[in-house]
Amino acid sequence: MQDFSFKKPDSLDAAVAALEAQEDGIYLAGGQTILPVMKFGLAEPTGVVDLSGIADLVKIEVTDKVVSIGAMTTHAAVAASVDIRRALPGLADLAGLIGDPQVRNRGTLGGSIANNDPSADYPAAVLALNATVVTNRREITADDFFVDMFETALEDGEIITRVDFPITDCAAYAKFANPASRYAVAGVFVAKRNAKTDGGVRVAVTGAGPVVFRVPDMEAALDGDFSPDAIKNISVPADGLNNDIHASAEYRSHLIGVMAERAIKTAKETNNKGGGAQ
């Protein structure tokens, strides 16, 4: 790894200034992706601006409508949060499935979605729950945030401060994990939402395509009948899905259906147990 200057500012403004002072600077969140990338020489920043000194970025706030999570909150903290588990158990479950314990102890929500790895877990929750990504400059809806592989709506120097997840009455995530990396070969987050007031069910798929995407056919079917049977005959075509050493596009296409059914089943069970919020 080539050497770089290191700054750990204690405010958003200072972080922006520190980044702007660099010819080729990057923000550092948990480092679980960027540090291995830098070790491979695939990124060679001249300056690293560590966001961990900004206290406001680590927090979990749960109201009766929204789960608000600070961008530098670790996956381990989300998975262990009793409040999140009560309000959105599917989100806590997802956080507990990211990587492994060591990665969850360092990796952060903001880092994950800013990186927008096509196989990352969080983008599926952000998109399916219709979350709002809040930055130091604006609010970005989930549908606008994830642009393409490793590409988001974030502008140069923009910092995610928190993500607001609207609470729905039942939601769950299921993924087929790569056995070595635990990245999603295909992961599906299903969120049941009121069709009249909240735009209906949302189904988001990660791992299978170049970027997280929704499945409108499944969403429409689930609006009428929120059950695994409702989507039995709906498939996402293999065309355009990822095809690599881990899984063929056809296999990923098949996995989307299986994972969606599992997520729906889990969401219904969670709701029946009264674990989900109203």
Binding site: F6, L35, P36, V48, S52, D100, Q102, V103, N105, R106
Partner: peptide, 21 residues
């Protein structure tokens, strides 16, 4: 995970963390 150490009581991979962190 061979390089796992505990930082503030939590296991982390020391090959994926900067000393300055």
């Amino acid at each position: 995970g061979a390089c796992t150490v505990q930082v503030n009581g939590q296991p982390v991979k020391s090959c994926s963390m900067l000393a300055v962190q």
